[in-house]
């Protein structure tokens, strides 16, 4: 596997593939954060979560088209607006979905899988009808292109840095929201003991709705930054959904730290293996190992709840 490479080349390969894995890690993490919070609190899995990523990506695309046409002076900065727009649109749609669909199904988590799968079919076809089946990419601002030459053999793309930066900021924000805010207190109370939380005067239905919408909003941000590393099609989001589910389960539901650790290990393993064997086998091996570990440790790496 390592024949024909010198030590420094291998170092460079690991650094560059590691950085590529970091971008993948960021998409996984932003997707999985939302899912993990939702799953931890309400025990439902949203099969349409990938479509919220797509919503964020298409919002960014629309934003870039509008900026290009009507406000060329905005082109350098529109991307930050697009991230905010991605969050707001995905948050709003997530709120609506919870209100009109999910809240009726909390007692039937398996049925939620089916209903949200139906939702994802509808959303995908909606994207296809609105934006066409062909993949689109927003026009990226100049400063996002190019790369940063670290050494002779190591090059770090700027867009990757942006992805990492946004992810770090957002993860910290979620952390503070959950563990340092009044609202986070309610969320954690509901997650730990719903009945007691209700008895203490927390409106858990409202907490549920906001949590669900927040999770979708984070996926929307994931979609916005996703446009810098890949083009967007109607099914872009659903490509990541299986990996994201595994990230959530592998990390141990409702554990923020576990989600980060599992997203990191899965993304890195996949990305580094990809260099040495072909991409599909890298994915097969990574996912198979994850499932193997899950069979030994079904509660995930960092389980915070007692097995029932």
């Amino acid at each position: 596997m390592f024949e024909g490479y010198t030590a420094s080349e291998i170092g460079a390969i690991f650094a560059m593939q590691g950085f590529a894995g970091l971008s993948l890690f960021c998409v996984f993490l932003l997707m999985a954060l939302g899912l993990a919070i939702i799953f931890g609190q309400m025990q439902v899995i949203n099969m349409a979560h990938g479509e919220f990523l797509t919503i964020g990506a298409y919002s960014t695309y629309l934003m870039s088209v509008v900026a290009e046409k009507h406000a060329p002076w905005l082109m350098d900065y529109y991307f930050f607006l697009a991230i905010a727009l991605g969050f707001v649109v995905a948050f709003a749609i997530g709120w609506l979905v919870e209100f009109s669909l999910i809240r009726f199904l909390y007692k039937r988590p398996l049925d939620t899988l089916l209903a949200t799968w139906g939702l994802s079919l509808i959303m995908q076809q909606g994207f296809r009808s609105m934006f066409g089946a062909r993949e689109v990419s927003p026009t990226l601002p100049e400063w996002l292109l190019g790369s940063w030459q670290l050494s002779d053999t190591i090059e770090i793309p700027i867009n990757g840095l942006l992805v990492v930066g946004v992810t770090a900021v957002l993860t910290l924000a979620v952390f503070f929201l959950l563990f340092r805010s009044r609202w986070g207190l309610k969320v954690r109370a509901t997650t730990q003991n719903r009945v007691m939380a209700e008895a203490a005067g927390i409106n858990t239905a409202r907490v549920d709705r906001n949590t669900f919408a927040l999770g979708c909003g984070i996926a929307g941000v994931a979609g916005a930054v996703f446009t810098t590393i890949a083009s967007t099609g109607p099914t872009s989001g659903s490509l990541y959904i299986v990996d994201t589910f595994l990230v959530v389960v592998f990390g141990g539901a409702a554990s923020l730290f576990g989600t980060i650790a599992s997203a990191f290990s899965i993304a890195q393993a996949q990305s580094i293996l990809e260099f040495f064997i072909n991409g599909s086998m890298a994915k097969v091996i990574t996912l198979a190992i994850v499932i193997g570990i899950l069979m030994l440790r079904p509660e995930g790496l960092f389980a915070s709840r007692v097995r029932k």
Partner: peptide
């Protein structure tokens, strides 16, 4: 063909709900 996916999605939701 376009309508079918909408219908299929609605079927999933409708049957469950």
């Amino acid at each position: 063909p376009e309508l079918w996916l909408f219908l299929m999605g609605a079927l999933f939701i409708g049957v469950v709900m």
